[in-house]
Design a protein around this nucleic acid. Structure first.
Length: 603
RNA sequence: GGUCCGGUAGCUCAGUUGGAUAGAGCAUCAGCCUUCUAAGCUGAGGGUCAUUGGUUCGAAUCCAAUCCGGAUCACCA
């Protein structure tokens, strides 16, 4: 039971005893006491004034006295300032917390709750390489999955690869027309970048055709429709859906190149999936469901034979679910995939990590699933995250201002190498150890940077700030961990030390020494870790963990500078601080792991 | 135009169901390495919480209006 819950329970009990009525935890507020006042937690009296018809001071005095008298194991003293009852929690409470949990690597995590959640994330298109926005998506998806696991859910990580559709045909057409048989191998280019270049090429050539048509007298709309490249692309999509062999062969070849490139990137950034869906496999199921929906009159067919759903009664617009030429649109396959996910895994919840530009799309998808009566439609959750913008504005592929994921990773790792070399603390590392360290720090910095902001918010990517390894950053937290590990190594705290110190003798001899302020600050922060995970889980928000773990590291660093651990004032103090250090190290490692960031033993 | 999201220090962001003098990091300035890793620590300056009104003991937080920014409303995905 957390200190806040204990506090609420004891307050309810005391209030009921004192005033002879029933209370709930909603009748009063519990806050952490502000640093300028004495105490650890504060109960706000004002909300009780009305029902009790007493002054806040009077209630506070009675309650404070009753709490200290009846819960001596929890509270040592209290003070009242205005309507705020500040309670000091006993040192025994904190030292007991320390002894019970310092060596528990599962501290903060919950037992399995029997529920299954699918987290779909990453979801790339096979016509362009991954960029900064995808990195935010991947890190979010991974981290949310870890946070759910820590909260007791069984998690299935999935990915839907957008491997078909008109946009994929664009790069295929461009390659056919302009590549002269070039391949990633022949040009020594990473496969995803290679294909991406032809997608860009398509748009360039297409634009030229439009301009030519307009110059020849067409209006813009007609020109866009009638441009030969676009016609060829549309024909190719039809051929693809008809399974025309040469189109399928080309499609497989080009997608293969992209997957080779993606594999490299995914491996580097540490993304993986339990199941990968391909749109090419799911869109047909979607089309089946569209037919059923048509029969059920959820959908209707227009004269040109395109199929629609009317959502105007729900405050939305009409939405097309199948084109007049019979091909599937984006949402068609999403409907199919929703059903497939459920039938395959019988999941309790389906989380989609998708950018907020698709809020409308996801709303429509859920509504259509509901109207079709598909199972589990109520349990679709869109984890909608904000765009990553640059200090100079939005990323625009046309203007070449897209930050490429591979470049980004390279740069972060190079920066971590440079910093590490400048500091010269790991000169005895061999090449392999160094490479691993640079990866750990560079990726750690990048992941932390993208995860420390509330997912919902549009965030600004500042290249200079992102490679800063000081302050509210991944390397700061990693550094704190490495520092603790260094102390523990020097103090001889290893697995054998734990065997000795975990003996029953230790447990029966609790630490009874008084805590200094910074020691208690650390324990108060450590106690909040389970609550931080819970909040992160409820909000699907890894930034809660990032903020928490930074705060813990900062608190430890203050403590570290102020008090010596190995040369503490007494043996008891030394023991206490070693326990504390071990506990902090465990929680930092665990919290960072929830963010997908590993921590180095040395740096 | 409709719908949705946002606006907090020079910059990037926190800020729990309304609570005490609104917090961090970066940047700026001033300090701290003969003792456990200075990727660290301590301190200072920096705020009309977009604006106006309302609700109340009490509002960055809730409500309304206005201003500004973004997303979306495609036979693109």
């Amino acid at each position: 039971m957390s200190i806040v819950s204990s506090l609420q329970a004891s307050t309810i009990e005391s209030l009921s005893a004192l005033f002879n009525q029933a209370f709930t935890e909603k009748d009063f507020q519990v806050n952490q006491t502000k640093p300028e006042f004495e105490g650890d937690y504060t109960i706000v009296m004002f909300s009780l004034v009305k029902s009790l018809k007493l002054s806040p001071e009077a209630i506070g005095t009675q309650l404070g006295e009753h709490l200290v008298k009846n819960f001596p194991q929890l509270f040592s003293r209290f003070n009242i300032i205005k309507g705020f009852l500040n309670l000091t929690v006993t040192d025994n409470y904190w030292t007991a917390l320390l002894q019970e949990n310092y060596n528990d690597i599962c501290y903060g995590k919950k037992p399995m709750n029997g529920k299954k959640v699918m987290v779909e994330y990453s979801s790339p298109n096979t016509n362009k390489p991954l960029h900064l926005g995808h990195l935010r998506n991947n890190f979010l998806g991974w981290s949310v999955a870890e946070i759910l696991k820590a909260s007791g859910y069984e998690v299935v990580k999935s990915c839907i690869v957008n491997d078909r559709g008109i946009h994929i045909c664009k790069s295929m057409i461009a390659w056919e027309r302009f590549a002269n048989g070039a391949t990633p191998q022949s040009t020594n280019t990473k496969g995803d970048h290679f294909v991406g270049a032809y997608y860009v090429r398509f748009n360039d050539e297409y634009k030229k055709e439009i301009e030519a048509l307009i110059a020849a007298g067409s209006d813009k709309e007609t020109a866009e429709k009638e441009a030969p490249l676009m016609k060829a692309t549309q024909q190719m999509l039809l051929d693809w859906e008809a399974g025309k062999p040469d189109v399928i062969t080309l499609w497989k070849k080009m997608n293969g190149w992209v997957y080779e490139g993606f594999d490299v990137t995914y491996k580097r950034i540490g993304s993986d999936f339990d199941i990968i869906y391909y749109e090419s496999n799911t869109y047909l199921l979607g089309k089946d469901i569209v037919q059923q929906g048509l029969n059920k009159k959820v959908f209707y067919q227009k004269d040109d034979s395109s199929i629609w759903i009317d959502l105007t009664a729900d405050g939305l617009d009409e939405k097309i679910v199948q084109r007049r030429d019979g091909t599937a649109v984006y949402i068609t396959q999403d409907i199919g995939l929703h059903l497939q996910k459920y039938e395959q895994y019988k999941i309790d919840q389906s989380i989609y990590v998708i950018g907020n530009e698709q809020n409308y799309h996801m709303k429509v998808l859920q509504l259509i699933c509901k109207k079709l009566g598909l199972p589990n439609a109520d349990n679709i959750f869109h984890l909608s995250y904000g765009m990553v913008e640059l200090t100079t504005g939005k990323m625009k592929s046309r203007e070449g201002t897209v930050v490429d994921a591979d470049d980004m990773v390279d740069e972060m790792i190079a920066t971590s190498k440079q910093h590490t070399e400048e500091l010269g603390k790991v000169k005895d590392f061999n090449a392999e150890e160094l490479a691993a360290l640079y990866d750990t720090i560079g990726l750690g910095a990048m992941k932390f940077y993208l995860l420390r902001v509330d997912p919902k918010k549009t965030m600004v990517f500042n290249p200079e700030e992102s490679i800063d390894f000081h302050g509210f950053t991944g390397p700061f937290v990693q550094y704190t961990y490495a520092r603790i590990k260094s102390i523990l190594r020097k103090a001889g705290v290893d697995s054998s030390w734990f065997i000795v110190h975990s003996s029953t003798a230790m447990i029966h001899a609790p630490l009874t020494i008084n805590l200094l302020k910074l020691e208690k600050d650390l324990l108060v922060t450590l106690e909040q870790y389970p609550a931080a995970i819970e909040q992160a889980c409820n909000e699907h928000n890894p930034s809660v963990v990032a903020n928490y773990v930074f705060n813990l590291a900062r608190t430890f660093n203050s403590f570290y500078t102020e008090h010596s651990i190995a040369n503490a004032e007494s043996e008891e103090k030394k023991k206490l601080r070693l326990y504390l250090s071990v506990f902090v190290a465990h929680v930092i490692k665990s919290g960072m792991q929830l963010l997908g960031i590993s921590v180095p033993e040395r740096m």
